[in-house]
């Protein structure tokens, strides 16, 4: 066991939190995990800003201005930054909208879709500016490692973190390498 716990931050940008759910799928190994890691900013802790960390796990691609700010905060604070899942690596399912006009997307969701109250487009100044294209995170900041999959399996997370904690270069076996 490591003398000092590995400090880990996690976030979901343009993702569905499926990768976070898959991390939790390591099940009883969570008890082993918390012996060697502690969490900084993460949906698991509700800490709002990232402090200096050993490891940052980023789920999801970049779809708006806030995503960029969060991603840069992680890059500045995390010694090792990891793109977790198909969306962080390729844009993924949210990137399906990349060839649909943003205005058409908004109208489909907020005006034409059944059950939308009065068809009003959200326009609060606090809402982050959406981008016309969803981008993978490596196109915005330097990324150190990639965990493919939609989501990466619990075993992928476990293999990666245990390799890192043991001081080994993290590698994925062929059967852990999946894009779906």
């Amino acid at each position: 066991m490591a003398e000092r716990k590995l400090r880990v931050a996690t976030t979901s940008l343009a993702g569905c939190f499926g990768c976070h759910m898959s991390l939790l799928d390591i099940d009883e190994r969570l008890f082993d995990l918390v012996q060697v890691v502690e969490f900084d900013r993460s949906p698991l802790t509700d800490i709002k800003h990232c402090g200096p960390c050993d490891l940052g796990l980023i789920e999801g691609g970049v779809c708006n201005a806030e995503n960029v700010h969060v991603l840069r905060e992680f890059r500045e604070n995390c010694r090792i930054l990891v793109a977790v899942g198909a969306c962080a690596i390729t844009g993924g399912v949210p990137a399906l909208r990349n060839n649909i006009d943003l205005w058409d997307c908004f109208r489909e969701v907020y005006q034409y879709e059944a059950g939308t109250a009065k068809g009003v487009l959200p326009n609060d100044p606090e809402l982050p500016l959406p981008f016309d294209k969803v981008r993978p995170i490596y196109e915005v900041v330097h990324v150190d490692y990639y965990l493919p999959g939609c989501p990466p399996s619990a075993d992928v997370f476990w293999k990666f973190v245990t390799d890192l904690v043991a001081g080994r270069e993290p590698t994925l076996d062929r059967e852990m390498l999946r894009y779906d």
Binding site: A86, T90, V93, A95, L96, C150, D180
Partner: peptide
Amino acid sequence: GNHICPAC
């Protein structure tokens, strides 16, 4: 291309 494996 637009190769989105999880949606293919």
